[in-house]
Design a protein around this nucleic acid. Structure first.
Length: 244
RNA sequence: UUCGAGUUU
C-alpha cells in the first residue's frame, strides 16, 4: 500500500499519467487513501495531457480517498477547464469553491482572469479583477500581465496601458514577461517606435531575453522595416540567441 | 524547500 502511494506520486510527476490514473482509480475503489498533493499533481498532469475528463474524475474521487479539495485543487482544475474551452464549467467550479468556503487566492483569480481574457471576455476579466481587490487579494505580476495581454489582444491598448499604470501604482514590479507583453502589444498596434524605445531600455538593463528579441523582430518585419530587422537578427546571433 | 496561474513565433 505504501509502495503504491509512492508509485502513484512518481508516475503522476514523471509523465506516466494513464498508469497513474489507473492506479489512483484502483486505490480509490479499494478505499485506500491518497495525499492531497498527489491528487493535485495528478489533476494537473491529466489536464496538461488534455485528459480533462479524467482530471474531473480524480476531483470526484477525492472524497473517497479522504482528501478534501483545497484552493490548489480548485485553481488547478479551473485552469484545466479553461484550457479545454469549458468556460462555463470553470466558472461554475469557481462558484462552487466559494460556496464550500474555500477562499480563492491570487492564483485562482489570475487563472480566471487569464482564462476569460483568452476567450475574449476582457470586461468580465476586469470585473473579476475588481472583485479580487474587493476580497482583499492583491494582484501580482502574473495577474497584471495576463490582463494587460488580454486587453492588448482585443485592441484595447489604452486600457492595457492603464492597467500597467495601475500595476506600478500598486507597487507591483513588472518582470520580463510583463515587458515582453508590452513590447508585443505596442508592436501590433502601430506603436512600433514606442516598442523600440522600451526594447532599448530593456537591453540597457540587461533584461531583454529571446522572447523580447523575437517579438521585436516580428514587429519590424510586420512594418516592413527589413533593414532594422536584419540588424536585430545579427545582434541576436552575436548574443547567442537563435532567431526563429 | 517545485502540488496550481502569465509572454513571441
Amino acid at each position: 500500500m505504501v509502495a503504491r502511494k509512492v508509485l502513484l506520486s512518481s508516475l503522476a510527476s514523471t509523465g506516466y499519467i494513464d498508469e497513474a490514473y489507473c492506479l489512483f482509480e484502483e486505490m480509490a475503489e479499494k478505499g485506500w487513501k491518497s495525499n492531497l498533493k498527489t491528487c493535485n499533481i495528478l489533476i494537473n498532469a491529466l489536464g496538461k495531457a488534455g485528459k480533462s475528463k479524467l482530471a474531473w474524475q480524480v476531483f470526484l474521487f477525492m472524497e473517497d480517498v479522504g482528501s478534501n479539495p483545497n484552493v490548489v485543487t480548485y485553481a488547478t482544475l479551473i485552469d484545466v477547464l479553461f484550457k479545454v474551452g469549458n468556460v462555463d464549467e470553470a466558472l461554475q467550479l469557481f462558484e462552487q469553491m466559494k460556496e464550500k468556503g474555500c477562499e480563492p487566492d491570487v492564483v485562482t483569480y489570475t487563472t480566471l482572469i487569464d482564462g476569460l481574457c483568452k476567450v475574449g471576455q476582457v470586461d468580465e476579466a476586469e470585473k473579476l479583477f475588481s472583485q479580487m481587490i474587493d476580497a482583499g487579494v492583491s494582484g501580482n505580476a502574473i495577474t497584471y500581465t495576463s490582463l494587460i495581454r488580454g486587453l492588448g489582444k482585443c485592441g484595447e491598448v489604452d486600457r492595457a496601458g492603464k492597467v500597467f499604470q495601475a500595476m506600478l501604482a500598486a507597487g507591483c514590479k513588472p518582470d520580463v514577461v510583463t515587458f515582453n507583453v508590452l513590447l508585443d502589444v505596442l508592436c501590433k498596434s502601430d506603436r512600433l517606435n514606442e516598442a523600440l524605445k522600451l526594447f532599448s531600455d530593456m537591453k540597457k538593463k540587461g533584461t531583454a531575453d529571446l522572447v523580447s528579441y523575437n517579438t521585436v523582430l516580428m514587429g519590424l518585419h510586420r512594418a516592413r522595416r527589413v533593414r532594422e530587422a536584419y540588424k536585430i537578427s545579427e545582434e541576436m546571433t552575436r548574443k547567442g540567441f537563435v532567431p526563429d
